[in-house]
Amino acid sequence: MAGIGSAAVERSLTKENVIYVDSFPQGMTDTSAEEPSLHRVASVGEIEAGEASVVDVDGEQIALFHVNDAYFALSNVCPHQGGPLGQGRVEDECVYCPWHGWQFDVESGEHVQGDDTVPTYEVVVEDDEIHVRV
């Protein structure tokens, strides 16, 4: 049966999908944080409610969503065919892949109708700075 090949998915990810947050220069990692796996990716207020930004953390494309006064981090790569989830419409705490409309819960990463799941990342907000644990 068909499965997910990560290399294949990466190849299909188009360059146009990658949006760097202005305040997060490429390669920047907050090494002073107490937990070395936490990476500062944005500041509170930079992402409008209901919107998302795509950040690059050590080569991982991560879509950071601002939904209902909270932030959720998912892989930007749809497990279906590699579509850019960070560009998808958000409704009712779900994101719809703009390529084929696959619907994922932004908190759990689970496909609402199917079995596929998008990797999720813990988000920590401290002092108006948003961090993702990768």
Binding site: A2, G3, I4, G5, A8, V9, S12, Q81, W99
Partner: peptide, 15 residues
């Protein structure tokens, strides 16, 4: 078209 397949659709087929 809205139901297009990226090359990943073939690459992802295990086997």
């Amino acid at each position: 078209h809205q139901d297009f397949d990226a090359p990943a659709a073939v690459d992802n087929i295990e086997g």
